[in-house]
Design a protein around this nucleic acid. Structure first.
Ligand code: SF4
Ligand code: SF4
Lengths: 144, 144
DNA sequence: TCTATTTCGGACAAGAATATCCTAAATTAT
DNA sequence: ATAATTTAGGATATTCTTGTCCGAAATAGA
């Protein structure tokens, strides 16, 4: 469904958010250990999140990553997905015709439409904070 | 959502089905032209469909590909998807934890679950014939 | 100022997906 | 039989994604 990068991006953001909730800044090492992702690759992911102003990065000793309360509240899952995978998931569903529209639909169009819209709606209404809270409360997990 | 291979696989099957409906056997050339896909690559796709007994292939002059009425009726979209992409789409949704379960859910689990199940249900209930009919009747299209 | 820590960013490597090419095998028609 | 057509399948190429490596830049503390 999502690219590996996007999956790591979501996990990393949520891990950072859950820690920022508690006032803790976290390092690349922390993150890649706790979300079970390759360290060097995760560094790239974090750079991208940082450039997209989803998280904040601080260099130097006792540096690391954090996310502002404002961002946690305002940013949605859709923002992260968009940063990594673009809006493909909203457009090129089904069998990937170049231009999709209702007036010249592909055979699976009507069947996929609802699902696609439900997914879109879910991503656009779920905030980082919503998801991070479950982590903080120990109700959900980022690795097994 | 699906791999390119899977998309071609779906399109090819539907094109063949729509033609088998009219008693026409179609060749690789026909198919790749009408679904707008790279010919050599499409040949591989057709081989896979054939090995998976989704379509039938006939060699030699006036050979080509066709699909039986029985297969059109019995086979679902899910069979094609499974042949190309496995059952990933049913398992590794959301952020791709290795083992997914309700008792140790990832943060997006509850939100993704419904969507995933709806997708699964749709794929498992949509037959090749359902989709091919729309094509035959000129209501839906495989290229623009 | 010097050192240690930590992110940044460019270059490179490995792997997977996508795509092409060419020859073999089967089948039909002549 | 021979030639023409069409699928089968192995080898190879290209492109994209995923992943690693290493030195530069920033920053905190001694
Ligand atoms: S399902 Fe609709 S939107 Fe998706 S590829 Fe087909 S025509 Fe386009
Ligand atoms: S949403 Fe559920 S099933 Fe999907 S990866 Fe997360 S825990 Fe697993």
């Amino acid at each position: 469904m999502f690219s590996k990068s996007c999956e790591y991006g979501i996990k990393a953001t949520l891990y950072i958010a859950s820690n920022s909730n508690n006032g803790n800044r976290v390092s690349l090492n922390d993150i890649s250990e706790n979300i079970d992702s390759p360290k060097a690759f995760t560094a790239k992911i974090l750079q991208k999140l940082s450039k997209n102003k989803i998280i904040q990065s601080i260099k130097g000793p006792s540096g690391g990553f954090e996310i502002t309360t404002e961002n946690m509240n305002n940013l949605r899952l859709s923002h992260i997905v968009k940063a990594f995978d673009g809006d493909d998931i909203y457009k090129s569903c089904g069998i990937g015709l170049e231009e999709c529209n209702d007036s010249k639909p592909c055979p699976v169009h009507s069947r996929f439409k609802n699902i696609r819209e439900e997914l879109k709606r879910m991503l656009e209404t779920t905030s980082i904070l919503d998801l991070a809270n479950g982590l903080t409360e120990g109700l959900t997990f980022l690795k097994h």
